[in-house]
Amino acid sequence: MNEWIPVTKLEEIPRLGARKLQAGDLDIALFRTGSDEVFALRDRCPHRGGPLSQGIVHGDAVTCPLHNWKIDLQSGEVQGPDQGCVHSFAVRIEEGVVYLDVASLESAA
């Protein structure tokens, strides 16, 4: 069962940027791409735990600020030759409001 709750307005996330979202003890990174899509990943690089919300967003990927690992925003998968995966969460946008599926948080906790 999905449980969508509004988390922010689209305009509150800078284009080609990110916001950190705190859900209890869990830090989530909300990314907004150049084409105004929004993705949510756990705010923790699988390499050395760098905060992905602080990275540079480009295309459908974010590059970790600590050691430049590149992570696909859609799948959370680390891009070529490095390996690993970040937990991703379901988001949708409706009339400029960003909703997060809190049911999907349970599995990450």
């Binding site: 800078p14 916001r19 705190q22 859900a23």
Partner: peptide, 16 residues
Amino acid sequence: THEFTPLSIDRMRAAS
């Protein structure tokens, strides 16, 4: 401001 202020689900929940 957005750069330095994290969003919070709990705050959103409390507000709604």
